[in-house]
């Protein structure tokens, strides 16, 4: 039963995959004029141009180009960097771990802050923490994350000197160093998510706590905390599961900005560099892998939602 559900979901994902790869591939169609010329610049030799056209398959009909790009991509061959010549897949995968560590930390921060703010503000309506939570919910979704990053760098790196302004240490290398280097970028990345979760969870908790089954829970003799814990939170968190999936994509995108600010050698930084260097295969590779990750996460959140809500039939 459950596997059928999984299967049907997968069935939905496959056409999505096809379309997203098509979108990634057709980025090259957006390049005005002769892509090879645009990528190599005006003073490129005819020889180099021909070589690049062959490498990108530009001399073939468009559908054939796509097909050959796709079949290679499926085998893990995303081409080579125009700039360094390294394999795109290797370059991307070597940076995947860094980005994943940052994004995962950001996600954890979003949830911790979101839960904390939402629950306390619901329990103590119109208290200072409620106002703080609402203020945070409004501000967090509007503040430019790179500006926030700069402010925090000024405070915590320049003035207090507690945390490094740039650079990244992997958790496998040095856990404490990781924690120090990831705190600022993950907070900047996660503040939007924390605000979103605060807003959504706050309103869904308020709604859930008004519902009849909460009254039933009280009538059994439960007090506020057990009622929230056993009957309120799980129900209120349901819509947040979907949001979390969307947030993941959002954060992954925002790494292009945050990793640039903090000089973190992840996929976001790679994307920015590859544009500045007109390294098109690399850009396509980064975009493709990020979208794949998002599709996978969306698939997982769908399944989690299905497991959390018994009303969703697996058949």
């Amino acid at each position: 039963m459950f596997f059928k559900f999984l299967f049907r979901r997968l069935f939905y994902v496959i056409p999505m995959l096809l379309i997203t790869t098509l979108v990634v591939f057709s980025l090259i169609l957006l390049i005005p004029g002769d892509p090879a010329l645009a990528l190599l610049g005006d003073n490129a030799t005819e020889e180099k141009l021909t070589l690049l056209r062959a490498q990108l398959g530009l001399d073939q009909p468009i559908m054939l180009q796509y097909w050959s790009w796709l079949t290679h991509a499926v085998q893990g061959d995303l081409g080579r960097s125009l700039f360094t010549g390294e394999f795109v897949s290797e370059a991307v995968f070597s940076r995947l771990g860094v980005t994943f560590q940052v994004v995962a930390t950001a996600m954890v921060i979003s949830f911790i802050l979101g839960l904390l703010f939402a629950i306390t503000s619901v329990i103590k309506p119109n208290s200072w923490i409620d106002y703080l939570a609402r203020f945070f919910g409004v501000l967090g979704t509007a503040i430019p994350n790179f500006w926030l990053a700069m402010i925090l760098v000024v405070i915590f790196s320049v003035n207090l000197g507690w945390l490094p302004a740039t650079g990244f240490t992997s958790i496998t290398e040095h856990p404490v160093g990781f924690f120090k280097s990831v705190l600022l970028p993950a907070f900047c990345l996660g503040s939007f998510g924390a605000a979103q979760i605060t807003r959504q969870l706050r309103s869904s908790l308020l709604e859930v706590l008004e519902s009849d089954y909460i009254r039933t829970a009280y009538s059994k003799g439960l007090l506020l905390w057990p009622v929230i814990w056993r009957h309120g939170l799980r129900n209120a968190l349901l819509p947040v599961v979907t949001t979390a999936g969307l947030l993941f994509g959002n954060m992954l995108g925002a790494t292009v900005v945050i990793e640039s600010v903090f000089a973190i050698p992840g996929m976001g930084q790679l994307a920015v560099h590859s544009i500045l260097q007109r390294d098109f295969p690399m850009l396509q590779g980064v975009v493709l892998i990020m979208v794949l990750m998002i599709l996978i996460i969306n698939f997982i959140t769908d399944v989690i939602y299905g497991m959390l809500d018994p009303r969703i039939e697996f058949e």
Binding site: L252, G253, A271, V291, I294
Partner: peptide
């Protein structure tokens, strides 16, 4: 709708960046 869904699964900033990159900065 499938195409729209697929487009929406790209993070906005990343896609904007990639399109700008392709069109020319």
């Amino acid at each position: 709708m499938r195409v729209v869904d697929a487009m929406l699964s790209f993070p906005a900033i990343l896609l904007a960046l990639a399109i700008t990159g392709a069109l020319g900065v």
